[in-house]
């Protein structure tokens, strides 16, 4: 540390400067009054809080600039509490600053390192302890202890097994089966092709299985579908995918292939679907090909057909798992 020698010299702690309140009793009295005023403001805040709690009905609204029509109960309850807390704090700080002794104190630091004797003694104690236990000599005990300690951790892990069922095929299956009608969400009304104009969309779910009275969230999380009608000539699909559409109506899983948000921002002019979570953009005319954003796969397309009554149905289940990717997914 040669440069330490060259440094200019430390002038030392500057002399203490007295505050007005230290020397002038009038100033001290003034400071005392200020602290008292701050504490009293806090007391007033508590009174405002109590008053608001009891006397201001929770359906009273006051008009305030910026905030608009504001709930008076919530506002004054909050302001009362805020003032009561804030001014206690300000009073205490002001008191400490102006009236409590403000002489700075210097304290020496101690070294953290233990003395050499202490260290030696500690090492000796530890060694003696280990020797007394005889762990080093009795290798049979050491090994079997290692084994048992290693295994005992398994029990609590195993106990966690029943946190949930195994996935099995539940990620690859949805409620859509061949012949399932598409129904509106909400409303559960079946849909005919002529119900949709060109440029129209509809949020749909599979019709409820007999005996069920509503869609569970776990079902919706896999079943939600978006129905879109284009002019048939706008499609740019291969023959198979084109056969999955009906008179320009095309259906995609609404669950994003990236992280599972509902992809439902349909831009009618560009025919793009946008996911509001991470901005993956899909091209409806090309079977939801990814145009932009982090999604790596198109949205699964649902094959459509008509039933005997002219309602839209699923021609077949989804041919691939819907929703975000997972390890066991094959493509």
């Amino acid at each position: 540390m040669s440069n330490e020698l060259e440094s200019i010299s430390d002038p030392g702690i500057p002399p203490h400067v007295h505050r007005k309140a230290d020397e002038d009793p009038i100033a001290a009295k003034r400071a005392e009054r200020q602290v008292a005023i701050l504490f009293s403001l806090s007391a007033l805040g508590t009174l405002l809080f109590i008053f608001s709690y009891i006397a201001i009905p929770d359906d009273l609204f006051v008009f305030l600039p910026i905030m608009g029509n504001t709930n008076a109960h919530q506002l004054f309850l909050g302001l009362g509490l805020a003032f009561s807390l804030f001014f206690i704090g300000m009073g205490a700080i002001h008191w400490a600053k102006t009236l409590m002794p403000d002489n700075e104190v210097t304290v020496e630091r101690h070294e953290f390192r233990s003395s050499d004797e202490d260290r030696k003694e500690f090492v000796k104690t530890a060694k003696d302890g280990a020797a007394a236990a005889g762990l080093g000599r009795r290798s049979l005990i050491k090994r079997s202890l290692g084994l048992s300690l290693g295994l005992v951790g398994l029990s609590p892990l195993l106990l966690l097994r029943d946190l949930g069922p195994l996935p099995e095929d539940s990620l690859t299956k949805t409620s859509w089966k061949a012949g399932t009608r598409l129904v509106t969400d909400p409303g559960d009304r079946p849909i005919k092709p002529e119900d949709l104009e060109v440029g129209a969309v509809a949020q749909v779910l599979p019709e409820l299985a007999p005996g069920k009275d509503h869609h569970t969230l776990s079902d919706i999380a896999k079943d939600a579908v978006l129905l879109i009608r284009l002019r048939p000539e706008e499609f740019n699909l291969d023959a198979e995918r084109l056969s999955w559409t009906h008179e320009g109506i095309i259906a995609f899983s609404k669950i994003c292939s990236h992280m599972g948000c509902a992809v439902a921002l349909y831009e009618q002019q560009t025919k793009h679907l946008l996911c509001p979570c991470h901005q993956s953009t899909f091209d409806v005319t090309r079977a939801a090909k990814v145009l932009f954003g982090p999604a790596a796969r198109p949205l699964p397309q649902l094959a459509l057909a008509l039933d005997s009554e002219g309602y839209l149905i699923a021609k077949q289940p989804f041919t691939e798992p819907v929703g975000p990717s997972f390890w066991e997914r094959s493509s």
């Binding site: 849909i191 119900d195 104009e197 060109v198 440029g199 129209a200």
Partner: peptide, 15 residues
């Protein structure tokens, strides 16, 4: 009518 980017919401799917 589905102006600009907005799609049409048909009377049959949303009455």
């Amino acid at each position: 009518t589905g102006p600009q980017s907005m799609p049409v919401f048909s009377d049959k799917t949303i009455t």
